[in-house]
């Protein structure tokens, strides 16, 4: 094994520098020269060169095959984030039921959505869609046993925990809702790449431009799914089933 890696380094060294092995001035080169003289008393034989070529070829092939397998590993599931899904890090937000944190998400499959209650169009539509998603997934064991829906308000100035709870429970009494200070929110939104920014509406009030995707977080806090606009209950419930199956098969 050590021999193989030495040969590999040697090959790279030579091709990078364009120098012959005996012309390499530094320690590695000297070591390689010594190694070479142990292996063969004479000048590099053709079989020696063939070995290097073969090893390089095998190394390259293994790399290529691994890359191909890795790509093939990500099937065409709509909304699946794979490979290298983002990971939720530690966060803690306020809700009417106490703190909601990364612990609340552990061991559960969470549909996560960001919005605010002073959002009369997109947010109610999305929550109504999530209500339908929950109804469609009633027969899905993963969702029925371990599923949850979490609405996070990015407008802590106007959305209290109590008001938030009333807002989401209008759609479904099982839905969770939370918010927090800017710093607390950023601990959750940062890793997800969720953007939220206040924009004045010209009447002394403001709206909040925000990422409107629905995220699917697995029990190990991997963000395995992302559903963009327009939100559609059939697509999201089918996506939940396929992605949760995939996630369980790829722990």
């Amino acid at each position: 094994m050590a021999r193989t890696s030495t040969f590999y380094v040697y090959t790279v060294q030579q091709s990078l520098t364009g120098r012959r092995k005996d012309a390499v001035p530094h320690a590695l080169g000297r070591r390689l020269s010594a190694y070479n003289s142990i292996m063969s008393d004479t000048a590099p034989s053709s079989s020696f060169k063939a070995s290097i070529a073969l090893i390089a070829f095998v190394a390259l092939s293994v790399g290529l095959i691994t890359a191909v397998l890795r790509t093939a590993d990500a099937p065409a599931i709509q909304g699946l984030l794979w490979p290298d899904p983002p990971q939720i890090s530690a966060f803690s937000l306020a809700s009417d039921k106490g703190r909601i944190s990364d612990d609340t998400l552990k061991g559960r499959w969470t549909l996560l959505f960001f919005g605010f209650t002073h959002c009369p169009d997109v947010c109610p539509s999305t929550l109504a869609t999530l209500k339908q998603v929950a109804a469609r997934l009633a027969e899905n064991k993963t969702f029925a046993d371990h599923g949850q829906v979490l609405f996070v308000s990015v407008d802590p100035a106007r959305d209290t925990s109590t008001a938030l709870a009333e807002y989401v429970h209008y759609f479904d009494p099982h839905f969770l809702a939370a918010t927090g200070t800017e710093a607390e929110l950023n601990a959750l939104t940062g890793p997800l790449g969720v953007i939220h920014a206040r924009v004045p509406t010209g009447d002394g009030e403001y709206s909040i431009d925000h990422t409107a995707s629905i995220f699917l977080v697995d029990p190990q806090l991997r963000v395995l799914g992302k559903f963009g606009l327009p939100h559609d209950a059939a697509t999201i419930s089918a996506g939940f089933s396929a992605i949760s199956d995939f996630g369980r098969a790829h722990p």
Binding site: D121, V122, V199, T201, S207, D209, H210, T211, A212, L229
Partner: peptide, 13 residues
């Protein structure tokens, strides 16, 4: 009167 504008996966009013 508000228009909803989508920019990638964000919405703006």
């Amino acid at each position: 009167l508000h228009a909803t504008k989508r920019v990638d996966d964000r919405v703006q009013m």
